[in-house]
Design a protein around this nucleic acid. Sequence first.
DNA 1: TTTTGTATTATGTTATACATATAAAGATAT
DNA 2: ATATCTTTATATGTATAACATAATACAAAA
Lengths: 241, 241
Amino acid sequence: MKSNLDNITPLENLSLVDKVEMRLKEYFKVNNLKIGDSIPKELEFAEALGVSRTVIREALLRLRTIGVIESKKRKGMVLTQPDIVQNFEKAIEYNLLGEEALIDIFELRLILEMGMADLLFARKTEEDIEDLDKIVSKQEKEENDTTFFSLKHEIAFHGKLYELSNNTTLKRFQDLLLPVFNYVHDNMPEGAKDFKYSKGEFVTHRDLLNILKNGDAQSFREAMRNHLEPHFDRILHIVKS
Amino acid sequence: MKSNLDNITPLENLSLVDKVEMRLKEYFKVNNLKIGDSIPKELEFAEALGVSRTVIREALLRLRTIGVIESKKRKGMVLTQPDIVQNFEKAIEYNLLGEEALIDIFELRLILEMGMADLLFARKTEEDIEDLDKIVSKQEKEENDTTFFSLKHEIAFHGKLYELSNNTTLKRFQDLLLPVFNYVHDNMPEGAKDFKYSKGEFVTHRDLLNILKNGDAQSFREAMRNHLEPHFDRILHIVKS
DNA sequence: TTTTGTATTATGTTATACATATAAAGATAT
DNA sequence: ATATCTTTATATGTATAACATAATACAAAA
């Protein structure tokens, strides 16, 4: 007789709260509840499901934590549109992300900047261009004065690009990715600023802006690729565990 | 006497749990706790902060929900690496995302696919190419047989691309974005399949694969842009509210 | 009509007791 | 001495009951 433990499944080890949460999710689905709809009060759920109010509260608290419901005293609880970025944000606040996750996120940001060219060209407005112009001009002036490279301008320019995309989720995403970006930037090895660009010259924010004015998405992409080359160069040579 | 309510600020309206959560976060920071470290038990926190165990539990539950801590009976609680994608995932499961958020996410996916070319070329292996080849061959065969366009192949191919990136976060991200992608795809207006490509011809998966074999990142980007043109075309003409 | 007080109600908080899983120590067998 | 089986202590999980608090509705007063 051959023993095979692959065919035997462990009996589910779910807590009551886990089960209640599943039931709640099912309840929302079956009743086709939408944003703004209110749900029964805790005691009613407790009675209906035959568990204590404590368990119901814990399950509901989970939902509140991920932003699916909101509760108000006396009024009860209503379904809300979850803020998908917010949870991300909270998790990051605790500074518990490992090296690998940080690298992943850093890469993610490079990917986003490379990929959003089409959106920029489709959504840009005259005002946006003017704003960008101001940002670039200010940078040029200050850098002339101080010969000091400031992350501030970096953030202002690239942040504005995300704004141009007119994609709220994307923009908020980058807001949240900024600290990570800074972290990796700060831990940059010495001499990284003397980076040798393969094409010989560096694409500046001014260059990018000009392309945004008169060029097309494709040339913007390649210019951005050059602009980000030092970062790409560093990242692409990291061997992940 | 002129009454002016601008100079009076509302006193903060935080719940006890809110405050406790802040204290906990501070506690982690001050003690410089890292992943794997264990934290005091509920009763100790309760006593130290002078609140009931319930409140502590609710605050800790929030942390557990976003994946910052894990708890085991008798053992206590330990800090864990938060799974940043998981929270995203949970929020989406409740089908409460509004039209605008869905569009944002759909755009995000297009951006990712456009932006990851460099990563693909830096990380691709012989095996990856072989796998992709199998996927494409299978698709070609089945489509010849049935003349039936299947999302299955679409998912297999593009999913594999994400895998190539060797970026776990990115890959998991697209896993989670798939349902949204399908949703938008399913709600595609009739006739979208007869889309007229601006350059006259359609870049197939086979074409992309060949570029991945012998070409470079830049040409891959432009090929991908063509491949995704119907999606871009649709998205870029949506006027957001 | 507007303001102010009052009752009501659902969530927020406290307290206490018990259930349950499990790590750790101790006992037993090999 | 090692392995396996019991026991025990313990921190989280669940239940119950009571009270606090804030927001709402509604009545009373100005």
